[in-house]
């Protein structure tokens, strides 16, 4: 930047010092979880942080986890995947339609802006406000402890987000291509499916990934609506600590299984992250 000209070497060194500290601050907890999962119980409480030098890594925690608690973990992962995949796909499918409508049509009865506002206002709705009626609703529908209940919830949370992101994306596409298609005799629907949708594909994938991550990480509703059959990974890790005390070596294996999928997926959607987090209030 412009201010770099003066004393640039010192500034550059200081910059890198800050960067390194920030990176260490972010990565250390992940690093600690990974090495703890490869430690023998005795090494966990004798503080040691460098594998091979200070302790001998072992696969035994992972083996024990998958042999003794394999079915439970597998069920948790399966539930998490099914819930997050369906929730993100439904949310993005309906959200893309609505986003396209808001970007390309002018609505008279409910104005476009009011609708966008209304979707955005969902971002301000605390989950605690809907968790009790949702519990009662699911109870009366007989949907407690089913994946359907959590798919419904997570779709609802992800939908406004998908609508607003896709609205922005479609608005940035040139209208002329679709107009040309209309002139050539395409219907509105065909213009949407054949022209606009393929052009928006990268944004579409990114939105699915972000919705998937949020659904995967959701905890409060999972805690309230499921107890055995439909429990996702967030509940599986919550169960371990209380029943088994401080067995960090097992806790860490489960933490990694719960943390890694969304965290790694999110690294692929950096371009859309700012819009994603602010629902389009800030363009990144």
């Amino acid at each position: 930047m412009r201010r770099r000209r003066k004393g640039s070497v010192v500034t550059e060194i200081l910059t890198w010092v800050v960067v390194v500290i920030a990176i260490l601050w972010v990565l250390f907890p992940f690093y600690w979880t990974v090495i703890t999962s490869f430690k023998k119980p005795a090494d966990v409480f004798r503080l040691s942080s460098i594998p091979w030098l200070q302790f001998t890594p072992t696969l035994s925690n992972w083996q024990t986890e998958f042999t003794q608690r394999g079915p439970e973990i597998l069920r948790g992962i399966t539930n998490s995947i099914i819930i997050a995949v369906f929730a993100s796909l439904i949310a993005v499918a309906l959200g893309t339609l609505a986003g396209y409508g808001l970007a390309r049509y002018k609505y008279v009865k409910w104005r476009n802006q009011s609708m966008a506002f209304w979707f955005l206002s969902q971002r301000f709705l605390p989950p605690a406000a809907t968790v009790i009626p949702f519990f009662l609703l699911m109870k009366s529908l007989g949907l407690l402890d089913t994946r359907v209940a959590l798919i419904l919830v997570n779709t609802t949370f992800a939908m406004p987000f998908a609508v607003l992101i896709m609205k922005d994306m479609f608005r940035e596409l040139p209208v002329e291509l679709e107009e040309a298609a209309l002139v050539d005799g395409c219907s509105r629907w065909e213009a949407f499916l054949r022209i606009a949708l393929p052009l928006a594909a990268p944004a579409l994938v990114a939105t699915v990934i972000i919705c998937f991550s949020f659904a995967w990480n959701e905890f409060l509703f999972a805690l309230v609506l499921t107890y055995k059959k439909a429990t996702p990974m967030t509940i599986i890790i919550a169960g371990t600590e209380h029943t088994q005390g401080v067995q960090f070596w097992y806790v860490s294996t489960r933490l990694l299984l719960a943390i890694l999928p969304p965290t790694l997926l999110a690294l692929t959607v950096q371009r859309y992250i700012v819009r994603g987090l602010t629902m389009g209030a800030v363009k990144g």
């Binding site: 990974m233 943390i259 987090l277």
Partner: peptide
């Protein structure tokens, strides 16, 4: 640096 945002808070 954006990784913490996508880590489940309960985890």
């Amino acid at each position: 640096l954006t990784m913490p945002l996508f880590t489940a808070p309960v985890a």
